[in-house]
């Protein structure tokens, strides 16, 4: 069951207009920059995909990655916890102009909604956001004397994630704190596309070290020596 594809352009070729797309990473850590840039390149050549809903903790930084997607006009809606950051002009301008929709979700709730989708749990209760404006319109219930908010799971059509090692059947490891949302998103999308820094044959990853089992991954593409978002932002690179 070889899940590898040889180029990032082929890996993202099927993502249609209007798709809901999860993108792994927290800031620049674990962000699949090459997959994102391949998607932007395709949009610039063909006008598609557009009207995307993007799910990420943030809303892009500088002139690369998700910020470049937003600036290019591919994104209709962001679902995230922290769109405000030091270099988030791309999102800020569109948001303040009313040109992009925002669903703001507390970070732990965002993670759990994604995990729940991957685990077949349609809704759950959390104490987070109870009594705040982010809970308006959501059902609440008391358990053991404490109030909780009901949250729905969050699925996606596609997940773009970044692993460190990957084998041809989709088993993944992650580098340092680059794990973050990546293993959760791998579980929650209909089709999960992973870029990996080092592609190996089955058996090349010790089964004890596998973080995301290959069952959750549909496509693996090797990007050796991937770019790091934070380094690109700090050096002023624009895609």
């Amino acid at each position: 069951m070889d899940k590898t594809i040889s180029t990032v352009a082929e890996a993202i070729a099927e993502i249609p207009d209007g798709a809901q797309v999860m993108i792994g990473g927290f800031g620049g850590s674990g962000a699949p920059i090459e997959l994102i840039h391949a998607l932007i390149d395709r949009f610039r050549e063909t006008g598609s995909p557009k009207n995307l809903t993007v799910i990420n903790n943030n809303a892009g930084n500088g002139g690369i990655g998700i910020a470049a997607m937003i600036k290019a006009g591919m994104v209709a809606k962001m679902i995230c916890s922290f769109p405000r950051s030091s270099n988030a002009e791309a999102f800020n301008e569109k948001y303040l102009a009313g040109e992009i929709e925002l669903e703001l979700v507390p970070q732990g709730t965002l993670a759990e909604r994604i995990r729940a989708a991957g685990a077949g749990i349609p809704a759950f209760y959390t104490p987070s956001s109870f009594g705040t404006e982010l809970a308006i319109g959501k059902p609440t219930e008391e358990f053991d004397g404490k109030m909780y908010v009901r949250e729905r799971c969050l699925k996606a059509d596609f997940a773009l994630i970044k692993g460190q090692m990957g084998d041809t059947v989709g088993n993944l490891t992650y580098r340092l704190a680059g794990r973050n949302f990546n293993p959760l998103m791998a579980m929650a999308a209909t089709k999960t596309i992973a870029q990996v820094s080092e592609l190996v044959a089955p058996g090349g990853i010790n089964p004890e070290q596998v973080i995301t089992p290959g069952l959750f991954v549909d496509v693996v593409v090797e990007v050796a020596h991937p770019q790091q978002e934070e380094v690109l932002v700090r050096t002023g690179v624009v895609h």
Partner: peptide, 9 residues
């Protein structure tokens, strides 16, 4: 631009 991060959790 509103941003909540992990504060509510």
């Amino acid at each position: 631009v509103p941003a909540v991060g992990g504060a509510m959790d």
